[in-house]
Design a protein around this nucleic acid. Structure first.
Lengths: 346, 346
DNA sequence: CTGAAAGCGCTTACAG
DNA sequence: CTGAAAGCGCTTACAG
């Protein structure tokens, strides 16, 4: 039975055509394609020449059918979409992962598990083996998708330290910036510049970034001999508007605050506009430190002093660790150092 | 010959298992899977039940091997990466396309053709049939990738009106906002508010957005009986910094300008900071109108009056048109209306 | 080192 | 409506 190919596209050359032109068997062509082991130099040369003259490109579907591997990787977002798509870091991460995978000739499938239906669909798709591994962007507690993928034995590497407990200790790699240390560095900087009433706007406390940066804030304050006052802590959700709202709360509770450590640049933008509306000058009246060093830091007025997360390295490491896991290595955890970027706001 | 499956993952059920459980042949199962034509209700019910009990999921590789279709679509970026990844619209577009395709159970492959090498790799990948269609984000003249894909007969739908001449009239669909009309609307608004020396910062003039918005600016000015002065025109590249630089030029050349139509919100952000550094108040001294209604418009201070591009509809239309093209329909062009969003800057 | 051959899981004319 | 069968393009033990 022949499936008629559309008339516009001529039949693409197959391994059989290459074999004929090279004067060898299809098995030999395949061996050349797969590393060239157990093939004489002569045969290999003939095959490579034939590949060139025929314009042969491997049919990945046929290959996948027999190897059982798809040759592709998913980039999976299980957050509510808005949050991450609003985040300038997301772009950097996505671009970095795409580029790193391209190096290995592995296409990236973008998947967004916003709704329950989508989650089910994606879980089915991935566990059906349509993808060899998953780069996961999701840091919330009890992510059912991540949980199921890991249980199903799919290699998964998360961005940020995973918090879903069911999975802890399982075959789940991750790559994260050193959130706690970064937060400490920022608070240290604020203290060193003479601030004494330092508030913080945290990320969601069911995310590692939320928890760890708050912990770093508290540790550094305590280490500096400053009181740790819960009235100085407000929680946001990483969005600009939540940063504005949290800052308004803080200002109402502690009118005397003279510095703010905000757990993301985007929230810091919101903090800046609340401060400006309240007539507080930055940094003279209130110093503001952000986190991420995303494009939002440069767009802010004044430009944000912030903690740089090495996103380019994070994406490269995520891909490296995932590929290793797909090759059977055990899941690795990689923690990357952060860096203080000094600008105008603190 | 059996490829040993990894011990951790049990063999997945195949069409054969479903057939056995349902008590029918594999052909019948396949027919049910592919629309259920020529199948009795009884058989269909039995098959569906068997699919449920076995947890069967189709093996797409096997299906693709025989149908010759991959069942996936590429989202291809051929711009220098930085520009688009800096653009907040990009996220909206990417998310929208992913969601629209997901509706049809079609995965989106993200491809970035930054370097020459990448372009070659991607062209080979796509023309080899690894993807059934391409959503193209690239508006520059003479894009070699787009050109080759269209020539190879791959269904392609571009975001924005394509400018590469070699391809014009070929099987290339596109979806675009009405750039010219949007520009006219903004200039009309500026004129109506009493502005007389209206400058513009254009996009790159080898992009339709650059060309069309400039044309709209000129048309509306002429229609309003205002002089069209080339000293009032400066060109940017859609980046924030280029908007800042172009505005500085304009201010030097025409210190008396009282309004600015900036062809993107991001560039308008740059314009705003140049204006602020120059001591010009917005909108009192200089009114500033943007274009896009991206998240940058809301982040700007003052908030930007801008032209809204209907990105959600653009992505949905791109997918619709591409799918139609993949089904053999001819390439369509869709122009979507824009809308003035009135905020603080003008 | 190399060829012949089996088989991956599916779809679809072809007969009935 | 339905089954038997061919065949999509590839990889990989198995013999030689």
């Amino acid at each position: 039975m022949r499936v008629s190919s559309s008339p516009s596209r001529p039949r693409r050359p197959t391994i059989h055509d290459v074999a004929r032109v090279a004067g060898v068997s299809r098995g030999t062509v395949s061996r050349v394609l797969n590393g060239g082991h157990h093939v004489s130099q002569e045969a290999a040369d003939a095959v490579n020449a034939a590949i060139r003259t025929t314009g042969y490109v491997v049919n990945r579907h046929a290959r996948s059918l027999i190897t059982g591997r798809s040759g592709s990787v998913a980039f999976l977002l299980t957050e509510p979409q808005e949050r991450f798509f609003e985040d300038p870091n997301f772009n950097v991460l996505l671009r970095g992962c795409t580029a790193a995978l391209a190096t290995h000739d592995i296409p990236l499938l973008l998947m967004i598990a916003g709704t329950r239906t989508e989650q089910r669909r994606i879980t089915r798709y991935v566990t059906a083996g349509h993808v060899d591994g998953v780069l996961l962007v999701s840091s919330h507690t009890g992510d059912p998708v991540a949980d199921q993928l890991v249980r199903a034995g799919i290699p998964v590497v998360a961005c940020g330290k995973p918090m879903f407990p069911a999975v802890r200790g399982a075959r789940l790699g991750y790559v994260a910036a050193d959130d706690r240390d970064g937060a400490r560095e920022m608070v240290r900087h604020l203290v060193a510049s003479g601030r004494r009433r330092i508030g913080t706007v945290t990320g969601p406390l069911d995310t590692p970034g939320g928890v760890e940066r708050l912990a770093g804030y508290r540790e550094e304050l305590a280490g500096s001999g400053l009181p740790v006052d819960d009235a100085l802590v407000a929680t946001g959700d990483y969005s600009r508007s939540s940063g504005a709202a949290a800052t308004a709360d803080l200002l109402a509770r502690c009118p005397d605050l003279d510095a703010l450590f905000v757990a993301s640049d985007l929230m810091a933008q919101g903090a800046l506009s609340t401060l400006s509306r309240a007539g507080r000058r930055v940094p003279q009246d209130v110093a503001v430190g952000g986190f991420d060093d995303s494009s939002a830091a440069l767009a802010a007025r004044p430009e944000l002093t912030t903690i740089r997360q090495p996103w380019d390295r994070i994406s490269a490491e995520m891909v490296r660790v995932l590929l290793a896991q797909m090759d059977g290595e055990s899941a690795a955890a990689v923690i990357l150092p952060t860096e203080l970027v000094h600008r105008e706001s603190a």
